[in-house]
């Protein structure tokens, strides 16, 4: 992968804690203190209750492979074919990622397989949360 060509996230005030977390090797979610709901995307409020009494929590990093495609189309910074996946975190929310340390084939990418987070440092500003087969 030629990392330099990828479109990298531009953190905003609502998401800064998330991108600060990945730099420290932490996958951060948010939790509503009144309902107990854990949510993602980052917001200054709980999207279910509208409540602003929220906290940032560290996710376990455990997830399962919820769905994916293997793209054969050209994309800056990627060498096709490559998988674009959505994982379901142990805490509930879904998140897009690539599956690393794994063949990019239907045979190797089996739905519901256990995964764990793997942090990919792109540069001093951005570390991307990726996922790899559990125990690898």
């Amino acid at each position: 992968m030629d990392n330099d060509q990828r479109e990298l996230p531009k953190p905003t005030p609502e998401t800064q804690h998330f991108w600060d977390g990945t730099k420290q090797g932490k996958l951060r979610l948010q939790k509503c203190k009144s309902t107990g709901e854990v949510y993602f995307l980052p917001r200054h409020f709980c999207p279910s209750s509208g409540g602003t009494d929220i906290e940032v929590i560290e996710a376990s990093g455990r997830a399962t492979l919820h769905s994916y495609v293997i793209s054969h189309l050209p994309a800056p910074g990627f060498t096709p074919p490559y998988a674009i996946a959505v994982v379901k975190l142990e805490e509930g929310p879904k998140m897009m990622c690539n599956i690393v340390e794994c063949a990019q084939t239907p045979e190797a990418l089996v739905l519901d397989m256990p995964l764990e987070v793997s942090f990919e440092k792109v540069n001093d500003e951005i570390t991307l949360p990726q996922f790899k087969p559990a125990g690898k």
């Binding site: 996230p9 953190p11 905003t12 998401t15 994309a75 990627f78």
Partner: peptide, 9 residues
């Protein structure tokens, strides 16, 4: 922030 870095086009 949360999809395009992973190669969606």
């Amino acid at each position: 922030q949360f999809e395009r870095p992973f190669g969606v086009t």
